[in-house]
Design a protein around this nucleic acid. Sequence first.
DNA 1: CGCACACTTGAGTCGGCTCAACCCTCGTGG
DNA 2: CCACGAGGGTTGAGCCGACTCAAGTGTGCG
Lengths: 259, 259
Amino acid sequence: MIKRFDPEAMVGAPMLSLSEFPPAGPKACRHRGGGHCNECKVRLVSVCAALTSDELDDLEALSQHVSLGPREALFSQEGRADAVYNVTEGAIRLSRLLSDGRRHVMGFALPGDFLGLSMPERHSLTAEALMPTEVCRFERRPFRGLVSDKPNLLDRLYERAGYELMLAEEQMILLSRRTAEEKVACFLVGLRRRYARIGRISVTLELPMGRQDIADHLGLTIETVSRMLTHLDRARLILIVPGGVRLLDADRLERLAGI
Amino acid sequence: MIKRFDPEAMVGAPMLSLSEFPPAGPKACRHRGGGHCNECKVRLVSVCAALTSDELDDLEALSQHVSLGPREALFSQEGRADAVYNVTEGAIRLSRLLSDGRRHVMGFALPGDFLGLSMPERHSLTAEALMPTEVCRFERRPFRGLVSDKPNLLDRLYERAGYELMLAEEQMILLSRRTAEEKVACFLVGLRRRYARIGRISVTLELPMGRQDIADHLGLTIETVSRMLTHLDRARLILIVPGGVRLLDADRLERLAGI
DNA sequence: CGCACACTTGAGTCGGCTCAACCCTCGTGG
DNA sequence: CCACGAGGGTTGAGCCGACTCAAGTGTGCG
């Protein structure tokens, strides 16, 4: 089952206009909806999987539940990084503004993804929700404390960092060596895999991000992304549908993506 | 002082032709030359800095000293990753062969760099020495054991992974958003910074890698790299010298690199 | 000397960018 | 109910930067 834009999920979610800068601390509502860690949908795919049920209670004591509406920022480039996050629902765009005004989209965080692996003093990027999104927020300091107590967790974070490094390598190859068509195909295939990893398997691939976001992620222009998608559509590899694409020939797409 | 190609350093180093596949295990000579961890040149800049003198002894007990001649492989893509490494001297090219035959150079490891952060089952890349190179080799299993005993070390590895992730982000931006000239300038500036980090500050930047390596690293062709270097040379920003470049106007170069 | 190899330089091509117009959908207000 | 504007997406024409192909230079080495 594919999750689509769901107005229901936004009940109680603080809305901010895009132009508005995020507040000093996000408007967190503790354990809104009564979701508990051991009932968490992404528990087994996220870093939390390292913890026993007891340890999970300690973690939960630190967690704040944050709901974000579409276009709302979780944190902002250059802002103090005083927390780390675990995405449980929705999708987040991670982007970086360059000094020359251009923007690069480093990636998209999906449920199970952890934000703040490298924990620098200040955020190197901006995180904005692309759809109604739920995240667990952990204050940096107590989280660090918890991590030093639980070697399993650090292990798991480290492992996750390794995974991210691997993804980054793939992305570098994609950016440097592939044609526009391969880039787009690769992006679709990669996204499908990531959805599959968290148990969302479907022929219709949801694209919560806009064409411009994809372009900024792949190092292309919006026109080229659009052209390539239409091209893949005309070649009957995909079918462009509202809010995403239907994968008609995933095998051929993978071959095109060079995987 | 700049380290140049030094035939002296190759005495006793096993030589392999480039075409030859690396042996099952590298030809390690235990503690060749009698270098000890607490006298190690890169001790303070590498992950080992996390350890006390006592702990360092434990680490040293696990270490094997490996000397590599130019073009010799430390490990090879698809080979079993049964060890991790710490570079203490020289330079290593980390490259990945793609299924379509093209090559991407992920980066260059310099003294103080740690190889094997993400510890997958099989190496995702090939590591080859670009010059006479010295590395410390640690068998994976005992190293993992040591790491679980010493939380400091894991912490440090984790921190290092975060640093690598940051570098990967920079590289992605470079690959996707910059022109050929900016890429080359950025590469030079970045390399200078990395040398500075390990205490090698000089106006002459040593380039142990060839033009093709730089091209494969920046997502350019060898001709373009060559043209851009000549262009920077003609613009009096750099001076091309044998084995490297002299930075004539580092400030202007940094501005060009967009940093 | 002659070969190998790394690098440089030039001419022409082409993929993706720029600029511009257009389409479609949706929300809003008369 | 339709008119309208805004925003996201698509399409087309022309251009330009990096690639391709090809030749030439320089250096080290047997």
